[in-house]
Amino acid sequence: MSILNKKQIQYIIFGIIAILLPILTQAKGSTITLLASIGITAIATLGFNVLLGFSGQISLGHGAFMGLGAYISAYFVSQMELPFFLSLALAAIIPFLVGFILGLIALRLEGHYLAIATLGFAVVIEEIFAEFSGFTGGWSGTKTTYPIIFGYKFDKLSVYILIIIILVILMILTYNFMKSATGRALVAMKKSEHAAQAMGVSLFKYKLLAFSISTMYAGIAGSLYIHFFRFAEPKLWGITLSLDLLAAAVIGGLGTIGGAVVGVAFLKVLPTVLQMLPVFGDFDGLAFVLTGVSIVVFVMFYPRGLINIPNDLYNKFFKRKRTEAEEVKA
């Protein structure tokens, strides 16, 4: 029991289930695509949650950072013929550095400047993606292949497995540092900037750290995206994608690790479900509206997010009974 209570073990079990599910059910290609897309977006959302859920900052440029990771990865694998893992590493490091520089400028001030600076970044980089066709293939997009590692050629299913493995590793790493000094500093900063400062937390340093880490995750997600879908075009990486990440983080549960996965799964499955219902199937944009409504509703009424529903229900119905029983005994 106690080992199952360890979050790290829970994440690994989640990973094993996520890998076995499509294998055992012999899932269709489209199901694997859906699951992989959940896994990829969950990685970016996990990063977004480090930023928003733990440090209380908003970015509208995370879609752009994902795009950056995707193009970098595709460029180094296809044009420079670098090994996949090296390209993946570059797709993590370069967005990290770009995020670091942008953060250096936008995070010195209190408040909303990061949101505005990243809004601008998103718009500008979309233009750059479109114009730098040597690097990105311009409006017509760029293509790449499934990864090849030590001569082993990945196929759709094995890329999906790779995505889940990386997701689980990142979940564990994130959990580890969130439960140590770094994480406590971030939480302190979000809840009380004064207390954090008085305890020696440099707000600038930790906001910058959270932002850079989150852009790195976005870069990794972008790299995995392009090596799963093997195609990318500039319009994929706009504000809409960033808003999706925001929505997933909020709906899943801010400041939680599992919330990133739950939130993304909710958002990705929602349109599919809507399409199956005959009444709603005809309306384009309905999923969008519902996502927007969900953001507002969750922020206002249940900021703890979907991930905490089981726990809260349990506490509501069982814990109380137990304490009542204890009171009776006393």
Binding site: L243, V250, F288, V289, V299, P303
Partner: peptide, 26 residues
């Protein structure tokens, strides 16, 4: 939403963005 902090309110306006973008084509 008076009790929601400024960050939460900012997130809510981003929810409105999605609602507007979804409603327009509908």
């Amino acid at each position: 939403a008076v009790k929601i902090d400024p960050l939460g309110k900012m997130i809510m306006t981003m929810g409105f963005v999605m609602i507007a973008q979804g409603l327009a084509p509908m």
